[in-house]
Design a protein around this nucleic acid. Structure first.
Length: 273
DNA sequence: CCAGTATCCTGCAGGC
DNA sequence: TGCCTGCAGGATACTG
């Protein structure tokens, strides 16, 4: 479900809703998520801690607390963080519930269980296997300089390369397709067959599409919602993602769709080369 | 090291 | 209507 703009939308909502709140208790059921969810361990650590301003790294959320430590959250494909009154009905696949001192609860819901919620001690963050391997933040102003050399010596399709979180952290299937359409680059084009100038253009379109999507609160296709239950509105701005068979908004050609690297990909066969 | 594929899991849309 | 198949916003283990 969530890519950088959706995760950033969640981060901002949590910044205003749970910043300063204290955890009073933890309940749930340990299940096999991407990393095992250990409710008992969280119940031993979190009560009494206060949430600080949350951070985002790529598609990861870091819910920092005082005393120092962080709950590392990834939403996977179907993860949702809810902030709801304690009396709110329980959604299916709610795995862990943090009761807060304002009468509300922070709930982690994840039907497909590709997400995670694990505790990080202050020292754990630097050498965490996921966080440590992440590439640059795509909104970094130096992206147009740093991206080309990472791509120019690779033969894989550019679409697969910009989805690789070790190179750039935060782009997913929707925004990869959108950024490539804006840049006029064919998603199957090999990285080493794209000029530095065109890669700099791609860096710019990546930043534009992510920034616009954040401003719209992300993209809601099926079930993405902010912690207070709202939808994102960027779906109406999508130019190619999910538009296979429809006309390109730029040139009128029919948008194509095929799997690249196992992920469905849409592009315009006329204006993407 | 790199590129490509399989896999984890549930829900839901579409075809028959 | 019900059953079956395939696909879904992701990350990673594995294969050649």
């Amino acid at each position: 479900m969530p890519e950088l703009p959706e995760v950033e939308t969640v981060r901002r909502a949590l910044a205003s809703e749970v910043c300063g709140k204290r955890v009073t208790s933890v309940r749930g059921e340990s299940v096999a998520l991407r990393r095992p969810l250990e409710v008992e361990a969280l119940a031993a650590i979190l009560p009494g801690r206060r949430f600080l301003e949350p951070r985002r790294r790529g598609k990861f959320l870091l819910l920092d607390t005082a005393p120092t430590g962080s709950l590392l959250v990834h939403l996977g494909m179907s993860g949702v963080v809810q902030i709801v009154p304690a009396a709110a009905p329980l959604r299916a696949h709610t795995h862990v519930i943090l009761e807060l001192d304002d009468g509300r609860e922070l709930r982690f819901v994840d039907p497909r269980r590709f997400g995670m919620a694990v505790w990080l001690e202050p020292g754990d963050e630097a050498d965490d296997s996921s966080l440590g391997a992440l590439g640059m933040e795509p909104l970094d102003p130096r992206l147009s300089q740093t991206l080309p050399p990472l791509i120019r010596n690779r033969r894989a399709p550019i679409k697969s390369l910009i989805l690789d979180q070790h190179l750039i952290a935060g782009i997913g299937n929707i925004y990869a397709a959108e950024a490539l359409w804006r840049a006029g680059i064919h998603p199957r084009r090999a990285g080493n067959r794209i000029s530095v100038a065109r890669l700099a253009t791609l860096a710019t379109t990546i930043q534009e599409v992510l920034t616009e999507a954040i401003a719209e609160g992300g993209t809601t296709l099926r079930d993405f919602a902010t912690p207070d239950g709202n939808s994102g509105y960027f779906a109406v701005s999508l130019q190619v993602y999910g538009r296979q068979g429809e006309p390109c908004q730029r040139c009128g050609a029919t948008i194509r769709g095929e799997a690249i690297g196992g992920r469905t990909t849409a592009w315009c066969p006329r204006c993407q080369r």
